[in-house]
Design a protein around this nucleic acid. Structure first.
Lengths: 200, 200
DNA sequence: TTCATAACTGTAATTATATACAGTAATTAT
DNA sequence: ATAATTACTGTATATAATTACAGTTATGAA
């Protein structure tokens, strides 16, 4: 995603939503009407810019011939997170899978491939994909993706205060993790909103 | 689905595939070209028929204004199965959720909402949705949806022969179920190919 | 037998849509 | 300082697309 401008993001998201809601992409006129453009050419220019940046494709001479490119229509699956850097950095993205609006009650920003057996008591197994929303405020009882001193882990958040955070593995063989957020570097990467398992 | 004719099914499936492949529905001309119609009106007639039968909707005056109706674009979620009758009967369908091609490696014919805790050792919990494919031949080791004397259950198939079938609950508190297919009425409704859990 | 439905051909007209060209103004990169 | 990019207005036009009307032929139901 080659940094869209603010305006380009707005246009792009609108197109995405239209496809989701109507089942087909908007025309230049519809885009113009929505954003108050007085000329359909404003929309045309935006489409060309978005195409140039690789987030969509245009079929020439075709009404509503807008297709979102794979990278932009899919949701990234994060495998192993390399230390440092943001979780959604290119090198962490194992693949992308199609967006599936309407299946889960919350939006999904990315999927995380589960490593280890620390959450088996709540039915989260190795290699399951857990759906993560970055924007839901983390709260007690939620299953969260936390980064503790640059190590990423999935646990149940059982206590959260200024001086102490407790993360519980849902597996009786593992002890709780107690963190002092003033001493340790703790970042919440998101909340688990769903789970996907593929029996292949 | 009010029994489409053979031809109508062909047209309908074509439209479905086009949307999936291109990201937007076909025009009357494109439909006509694909099926060899010499008049775009042949396509128009078909679209009207398909609309009348409730499987799609048409936006007037809108190019490519074809949307698949929910029932036809979604995959049924089966809640409690009433005794007798086919599993996909109207009264068993709790809701439908959007199709999500590309997420699971196998096709999904329906989702079954899990009742009980008999499969928790393999991470299948109450209220999870398990994705079922009706056409994969059941085999040893698969998690299957079986109907035994009209009762529907989800278990691991551990033995299958002419004289004996063993279904194993994945929970040490429950004993294996041994069935004599010659005596008991055993039907395999499908194989579990995936799992979906919504943390709401 | 007659009527409705299905599955088309053929023509035509309105309107929906893509898209080029010529500008303007502000911002950002070189 | 200059060029490129962003974000538009305004006009125009070819063509893409919907959709109505008038038929034909075959099939199955009332």
């Amino acid at each position: 995603m080659k940094n869209l401008t603010k305006r380009q993001s707005e246009i792009f998201n609108y197109i995405k939503e239209e496809i989701e809601n109507n089942g087909y992409p908007p025309t230049r006129s519809e885009i113009s009407k929505t954003f108050g453009f007085k000329s359909p050419n404003a929309a045309e220019d935006h489409l060309k810019a978005l195409k140039k940046k690789g987030v969509l494709d245009l079929a020439a001479g075709t009404s509503r011939g807008i297709t979102l490119s794979n990278q932009s229509s899919g949701i990234p699956v994060i495998g192993l997170v390399s230390a440092g850097g943001p979780i959604l950095a290119e090198e962490n993205i194992e693949k992308t899978i199609p967006n599936n609006p309407g299946i889960l009650s919350h939006g999904v920003d990315f999927y995380l491939k589960v490593k280890g057996d620390s959450m088996i008591d709540v039915g989260i197994f190795e290699n399951d994909l857990i759906a993560i929303n970055k924007n839901i405020p983390v709260k007690k009882g939620s299953i969260v993706v936390a980064r503790i001193n640059n190590e990423v882990t999935v646990k149940t958040l059982t206590k959260i205060s200024d001086s102490q955070v407790i993360l519980r593995p849902e597996n009786s063989s593992y002890p709780d993790i107690e963190i002092n957020p003033k001493k340790d570097n703790l970042i919440f990467e998101g909340t688990c909103v769903g789970l996907l398992r593929d029996f292949s």
